[in-house]
């Protein structure tokens, strides 16, 4: 190390912020415990809801259509719980990536996020149109359509939310990419 760097090194070392290591350790122990509890809670709650649904199927469900619906829904909470549990472990692996790998991952994530909201917007649009057409047909046939109209009104709010969110993500995407590219460039 040359003289200039040695001098800067001394100045750099002397600018070290004063940190109470014991307090830092206490704080991260609390956070660590909270995160572990949350991860297990997600998993157990998911399992609990799935078991409850199975109980409902066996002891409460009165007709086959209802049973079939519950059977289809029952694994969802458990799958979600397992996914949330695995995600918390995946986060640990991400923190061990070098800077270039992390930036590439972030870049891939921005594309994934955009794709996710684009696909969600398309699916919502198709479902919303189908719901409107179905409600419209019921009204034309003179059948009772009030429940379906309420559904249309409710789903319209979701439709708007999804499209606004997609628009926000799409608008931010080039800026996010530019920021990541700036961090990557030499």
């Amino acid at each position: 190390m040359d003289n200039q760097l040695s001098q800067w090194q001394k100045a750099f070392q002397s600018s070290t912020p004063q940190i109470d290591t014991e307090v830092l350790l206490q704080n991260i122990r609390k956070h660590h415990q909270k995160d572990r509890i949350k991860a297990w809670l997600d998993l157990l709650l998911g399992a609990g809801v799935s078991i409850f649904i199975l109980y409902t199927i066996i002891f409460q469900a009165e007709n086959s259509a209802f049973k079939f619906l519950l059977v289809a829904l029952s694994p969802i909470p458990l799958v979600f719980g397992v996914w949330a549990f695995k995600l918390s472990h995946q986060r640990e692996k991400i923190t061990q990536l070098n800077v270039a790998q992390l930036l590439r991952l972030k870049q891939a994530q921005t594309y994934k996020t955009l794709r996710y909201w684009r696909v969600t917007a398309y699916i919502f649009t198709i479902l919303w149109i189908a719901l409107c057409v179905y409600s419209g047909l019921l009204m034309i046939k003179g059948e009772e359509a009030s429940i379906w109209i309420i559904q249309v009104a409710t789903q319209s709010c979701m439709f708007l939310f999804v499209h606004i969110r997609f628009w926000q993500v799409k608008k931010r995407h080039p800026k996010d990419l530019a920021m990541l590219q700036t961090l990557q460039k030499e």
């Binding site: 991400i94 923190t95 061990q96 070098n98 992390l102 972030k106 961090l183």
Partner: peptide, 15 residues
């Protein structure tokens, strides 16, 4: 390595 990883993540989130 972990420190720089978290710091870059912090910068990205702040922005």
């Amino acid at each position: 390595k972990i420190a720089h990883n978290r710091c870059i993540d912090h910068v990205i989130k702040q922005k």
